[in-house]
Design a protein around this nucleic acid. Structure first.
Lengths: 188, 188
DNA sequence: CGCCGAGTTGAACTGAATCAAGAAACGTGG
DNA sequence: CCACGTTTCTTGATTCAGTTCAACTCGGCG
C-alpha cells in the first residue's frame, strides 16, 4: 500500500488527510495465474494498483488470441475505457503470473471524485499517466522496426520479459510468434 | 466558444457557474497556415480547443519530417506531455490550414485546478478523452494493414483528409509517401 | 507413457521500403 | 500574370522484413 502512495507522490503532493480518504477505499485482492480480472463484454468495476505480478490485455479473436498490452508491478491497471464510460469492455484483462492488487470500485471512486478535490486530481493524474504511456507506445509502433520494439521492451522490463510467453510478446510487438522467434535467434 | 461547452457537456454536467470560471480564462487566437503552435524543445504553455482548422504533430528528423498525429475542429489540442510535466516538448505542433483556437494557459489552468472542483474534473475528462483516442490508435496500428488504416482515417475524417498533404498522411499511417500513393491508386 | 501447447525452423510469398527518375502543383519574384 | 525553382506526387525496379503454411522438437502434465 505504501507503494501506491509513493507512486502517486511522484506525480503530485498528497496531504496525509487526502491520502486517508483515498486509501480507505482501497481493498486488497489476490488473483492466481491465468485469472480473469475483466472479461470482454463485461463492465470494468475497478481501478487497480499492482502490488505484484504481471497482467496482459487481450482480445480473444476467432483466428488467434491477440495481446496488445501488459501491466507491471507498481502501476495502475484497469479496463480504463470501459471503466470511464461504464460500457462493456472490448477486451479481457488476465493475469500472467499470480497477482496482488489494491483496488477501488467505480462507485467509491465516483464518490471520491464528487466529494473531494484530491479525488479528481488523482483521477486526472492517473489518466495523464496512462496517456503518456500510450503516447510513447504510438511513437514506438510508428518509428521502430519489430526488432527494435523487442529490444526496447527488453530494456525497459528485462527481468519481466523473461516470464512472458513468446506468443504474447510477439502479439504485443505486432508480429507473429514465428517472426519473434527468428528475431531472438538473430540477437543471441 | 459555445462548441467547447457542448464538447465538455457531452462528457460531464457542468453548472453555469463552473462554466463561467473555466471560460473566463479562455482566450481566442488565430494562426495562419504553417503556423507553429509548439516548437520542439520548448515547453507547452497552453491547452487549446480547436474552433476551426487542422493541425499536425511532427518530429523534425534528420532524414525526413515525421508526422504522427493530427488534430481537428472541436477537439482539444496540446503538447500534452510537455504541458503536464512542463518539460521541453519532443515534437512540434503546427497548423496545416488557418486555425482559430481558444486556449487556457498552464498557470491559469493550475489555478483552476487548485481552486475549483470542476477544474480537476475537466482536466481529468480531457486526459481521459485523449487517452481513449490513443488507445483506439494503438489497436488500429497493431491490428490493421496500412491500407485499412488509410480507409479508416478516410471514413472518420473524409472531408478533412482531402486537405492534408499525402506525405503527412503516409507518415501518420506509418508508411512512406510512395507506398500511400500506390495504395490510393489501388483503391480508386 | 502419450498428448498437447509452445517454440523453432524451412521455403515460398507478399506488403512495404528503398533508390531513382520524371510529372504535376505550388509559391515567389520579376 | 508568367517563368522559374522547389516541393509534392507518381511510377518503375529491386530489396527486405515479416507472413503464411507446414513440419518438427521440446517440455510439462494428466
Amino acid at each position: 500500500m505504501e507503494n501506491i502512495k509513493n507512486h502517486l507522490s511522484n506525480i503530485v503532493d498528497i496531504s496525509e488527510n487526502d491520502w486517508e480518504i483515498f486509501s480507505s477505499k482501497l481493498s486488497k485482492v489476490n488473483f492466481p495465474k491465468k485469472g480473469i480480472l475483466l472479461e470482454k463484454g463485461k463492465i470494468e468495476k475497478y481501478l487497480s494498483f499492482i502490488e505484484s505480478g504481471i497482467l496482459r490485455f487481450n482480445i480473444p479473436k476467432i483466428e488467434y488470441d491477440f495481446t496488445f498490452a501488459f501491466a507491471f508491478e507498481n502501476n495502475f491497471v484497469s479496463g480504463y475505457d470501459s471503466f470511464i464510460k461504464q460500457k462493456p469492455s472490448l477486451y479481457n484483462i488476465e493475469t500472467i503470473t499470480d497477482c496482488t492488487l489494491w483496488r477501488v470500485s467505480y462507485d467509491d471512486l465516483q464518490n471520491i471524485y464528487a466529494t473531494t478535490t484530491i479525488g479528481n486530481r488523482v483521477g486526472r493524474m492517473i489518466a495523464e499517466e496512462l496517456y503518456l504511456k500510450k503516447m510513447k507506445r504510438e511513437l514506438c509502433l510508428l518509428e521502430n522496426s519489430a526488432k527494435q520494439r523487442y529490444l526496447d521492451l527488453f530494456e525497459e522490463q528485462p527481468q519481466l520479459v523473461q516470464n512472458i510467453p513468446l506468443k504474447y510478446l510477439a502479439s504485443y510487438i505486432g508480429i507473429r510468434p514465428q517472426s519473434l522467434s527468428r528475431i531472438r535467434k538473430q540477437i543471441y
